[in-house]
Write a protein that binds this DNA or RNA. Structure first.
Lengths: 349, 349
DNA sequence: TTGAAAGCGCTAACAT
DNA sequence: ATGTTAGCGCTTTCAA
């Protein structure tokens, strides 16, 4: 009957009430060694009666472990990261860990501040989708402090660590090939900043596919902006303003936000997809694809990014698994929801 | 030059290196009282050189404050809560707090476990979207422990506390009226579980609008399931199976997931919106509405739910603001993206 | 302006 | 099987 009107009940209070020492109470709490069943019962009752809740700060201070991990993503409102968070949280909960969440907004500085705060709070480990290659310094600090971490979705030049990333080169290659096979030859790439690993890789896959088809990547058709709607809108707007001779017949949006921005710009220009402009996207768009299921996309196993990353971290924490870093590469899946070139007017050269 | 190869640098180490006492270092860290500029500089240098990072566990234990808050939602992958989380996180970061995140999955038991874990970690306050009215016991425990909390999106029968909720009755009323004014008379309600406050309120608004129009709510047109896609699909499927005489001409989905499920079921049945079936939804669907902008919805100021709730909590923590509980009611906005009855074949009686 | 002592709540390591 | 001691890393007194 947890009636505990008390504010701060300590282990001593419980010990007193149960007529034992604090150590015995501690042993009951931690299920350690053998405690006489009789004693255990008395202690448990005292705990119940006083409404005692162990202070995790105190035990964390002593044990050097907090059963807490940190998770830093660039933007939790990006459906991709939303699902990563969900996956991490599930896995953490199953392992009795709690999760600190933080948004870096692609800012290395904000990210550094977050990491510092979390290290100060003595997290046992960190899951992070690094803001950019400039996150390297921050990660080196994390390593120096002896805090295990796993990179999610993006890795960082110069950092060797456990990581869970998508096959961005392969995915972009497949997506581009899809357009090429449909006869498109002027395919624009609307991408994020090249300082981000995923952006570089997706561009590489795109260029590889073009070259295989004997096409030289055209700088005029490559727009590097940021992973957000406004970037997609502006990029599409720019591409539409190109002279007819160079204007693309297809657009490859390198992420879901960019794709949405492109759709908006196309609609504003009264152009329809895919009749007037073909569009494919890296990353699916969760709910949206159910409502508007006409976009061809490269869908990543989003939740798995979170669950697997968390799993790697926990194995690190418990000392299981190999000591050298492990890199998990998750393969995305091409979802063809419409044929991007069915009504393509221009035929391949 | 933070070269700190050390693992655990304590305040003592810094004190030693700077030739002062630990107290002086502590004072420098906390900017408290006056420290000789000369001394301060020496201390700061020692901190830098050793790569010292204060242990928040120790200071939290002593001060009884951790600069940490908890946030529990039913499902972070629901775009509504995603934005709430984002709003909370932004506000927290601005106030130098970190946020523990947890998903209850509408389970009171999971919620209770989470709350207990967080209280053990001595959060300074809690933001929570309660799983249901049965969360009451858990919240009473939180209160007994003296941990301030703010209810987000849902309140709980029998609990008086700071809260930030939407005008669910009013929103549902307006949305229903919209359909009525377009001539619909057989309007189905696809709702969540009545144990959840928002579901009850949305139903009330719906019924109120019907009654004002002289229509008696028809139990056959009210389906209570859960706030998820599968529920929406099943509900729509059921409604479509009704005899033509009773079958609705419009569906009111009480949340975004339900709306998506309904759309899917309608599409499977080869029915188009709004020609064959009108559809309105409580809650907008972020990215989706950009791609498929043809759904009439009641959009809530989602981010504000988070920022305002966090604000209320922080004012509570700093002792600002009135001591009696404050209830903030946020007004949703009707977004008419298409006319749900423009092509309605049946005219009102 | 600075320091010394005491202790926040818990548990590891050693008794008994 | 249980208890005693000491101390995790910091800050709140109180004193100098």
């Amino acid at each position: 009957m947890t009636d505990g009107q008390h504010d701060k009940v300590t282990i001593q209070d419980v010990a007193l009430r149960a007529g034992v020492s604090a150590m015995t109470v501690s042993r009951v709490l931690n299920n350690s060694v053998r405690v006489a069943p009789e004693t255990r019962k008395r202690v448990e009752q005292a705990i119940e009666e006083l409404g005692y809740l162990p202070n995790a700060l105190a035990s964390g201070l002593l044990k050097g472990r907090t059963s807490t991990i940190g998770l830093i993503v660039s933007d939790i409102s990006n459906p991709f990261f939303t699902m990563v968070v969900r996956g991490v949280e599930d896995t953490a909960q199953r392992n009795s860990y709690t999760v600190f969440i933080g948004n870096s907004d692609e800012s290395v500085e904000k990210e550094r501040q977050y990491v510092t705060a979390l290290l100060g709070k003595r997290i046992d480990g960190l899951l992070i989708a690094p803001a950019s290659d400039a996150s390297r310094e921050t990660l080196e600090m994390v390593r120096r402090r002896g805090c295990p971490f796993v990179l999610v979705d993006r890795d960082v030049a110069g950092i060797t660590a456990d990581s869970v990333i998508g096959d961005n080169v392969g995915g972009a290659y497949t997506l581009t090939r899809h357009l090429l096979e449909l006869g498109h030859t002027r395919i624009a790439l609307v991408n994020g900043q090249p300082s981000v690993r995923t952006a570089r890789d997706r561009r590489r896959g795109y260029e590889k596919a073009l070259l295989e088809y004997g096409l030289e990547p055209d700088p005029a058709l490559i727009v590097e902006t940021g992973y957000h709607r406004a970037g997609g809108q502006q990029a599409a707007h720019h591409l539409l303003s190109l002279p007819a001779a160079v204007r693309p017949t297809a657009i490859f949006a390198c992420n879901n936000f960019l794709a949405v921005g492109v759709v908006e710009a196309l609609r504003a220009a009264q152009l329809s997809i895919p009749e007037d402009m073909a569009l494919v996207s890296f990353d699916d768009i969760e709910l949206a694809s159910a409502l508007h299921p006409f976009l061809t996309v490269m869908a990543q196993p989003v939740r798995s990014f979170g669950t697997i990353a968390a799993q790697l971290l926990f194995e690190r924490l418990t000392g299981e698994g190999p000591s050298q870093p492990r890199q998990v590469i998750l393969t995305p899946e091409l979802i063809v929801r419409h044929s991007c070139g069915a009504r393509l007017r221009q035929q391949p050269a």
